[in-house]
Amino acid sequence: MTITEIVLRLHANSYYFFAIILFIIGFHTMLTHNNLIKKVIGMNIMDMAIFLFFVAIGYVRGGRSPILEPGVNHTFINPLPSALILTGIVVAVSVTAYALSLIIKLYKHYGTIDAEEIMRIRGGGSL
C-alpha cells in the first residue's frame, strides 16, 4: 500500500480515525495525570470519542435525517446510533457528576486533589 492509498483510506474513514485518536488522548490523560479533575476530563474525552465513533457508524454520506415526507425520496442516515448515544451521554453526565462530587469529598478529607499526595498521606502506596 502506498502512502497515497493510506492517506485516501484515512480520509474516507476520517471520522473513525479521529475518534480513535481522541480515544487515545482521553485514555492517556486518564491514566497518566495525577490531578483527579484531569482524570475526569480524560474520562469524558474518552467517552466522547466512543460516542463520536458510534454516531459515525450511522452516518451515510449525503444522507438526511430520517423524516419521511410523502412523495420525496432521499437517502436517510441510520438514526439508531444517534438515539442510543443520547442514552450514553446521559450516563456519562451522571458519572461525571458523581465523580466530581467524590473529588469534592476527597478534597475535604485530604486537602489536595493530587492522587500521589493522597497516596502519600494515606501512607504506603497500595495498588
Binding site: 483527579l36 458519572v95 458523581y98 467524590l102 473529588i103 469529598k105 476527597l106 485530604y110
Partner: peptide, 11 residues
C-alpha cells in the same frame, strides 16, 4: 476517607 478514595478508584 478510605471509602471515598476506594469508591473513586472503583468508579
Amino acid at each position: 476517607r478510605d471509602c471515598i478514595e476506594a469508591a473513586f478508584k472503583y468508579l
